[in-house]
Amino acid sequence: MLEYTLQLLASALTEGSIYVLMALGLVIIYRSTEVLYFNQGSIAMIGGISLYAFLNHTGIPLAIAIPASLAVCIVVALLSQWLVVLPLLARGVSSLNVSIITIGIAMILETAVMMLFGKDPLPVSSFSGDDPLTIFGASIVPQHLWIVGLTALALVLTLLFFKKTWTGRAMTGLGDNHLLARASGFPIKRLFTYSFIFAALVGGLAGIASAPISYTSYAVGTRLTIKGFVAAAVGGMGSPVGALVGGLIIGFFEVFTAGFISSNLKDLITILLLLLVLKLRPEGLMGERG
């Protein structure tokens, strides 16, 4: 029983880490543009697909393929921002409507990837083999450690970035008060760009790190987007800490529901959790009231 629980704990951490990364990107973009970026799942999907393409069609080593895939994600995210999001916001389209338009971007990207790579799930080999390690009696696939480790690294870097650098603090300020930031002459466009680059990095990382355990295909994005939003809303759309808390909670709820009750119920439980949080504490568990 203990081993089983430990096993579940490890899975929950892994799942949760992916959701944390997804939520983190969504929160950053929401804070800077007030747009719900429904395209974030496609960015993650493109990360996974790019990794597949680099590894299987070019033969470059993993250590180069990962940054190259992240670069692809950044390019796609910036294109979506320059070509669609910013021009529409500038034309006075409301941020909620722009959010819906990012669903359109996701649809286009998914269709494009489907045309290029087909519909079948594509395998990506693990970063360091598939022999499970035994830790306290629970056997853990190394890829899980990669996911948790990379997420932890990304989180530490994120927090340092927002606390220590001028750009990070400026981005926080932008999220706190748009009008004031605009009036104080913040380089808003540049900060928007940084937000999208940042979101592409964490989103792409989510797609890349999870590709070996769950395969990848043109269709994985929607699920990641939804899970990311659920995590972000539960934790609080307002802060990176909210993304961390929300992502882990959703990961734990899902894995433990599946492990102890029924895997049919895991999605239902997490969505009910979302509705409960929205009713009781709409600003999210970590959100600030007021």
Binding site: V84, P87, L88, R91, G92, V93, N97, I100, I101, I103, G104, I105, A106, M107, I108, E110, T111, A112, M114, M115, K119
Partner: peptide, 20 residues
């Protein structure tokens, strides 16, 4: 059918550019 989603998406974006 496979492309209809992409078509929806494209139409949405183009439409909002022409008529905000």
């Amino acid at each position: 059918q496979d492309f209809s989603m992409g078509f929806y998406g494209l139409l949405l974006i183009v439409a909002l550019f022409v008529f905000p």
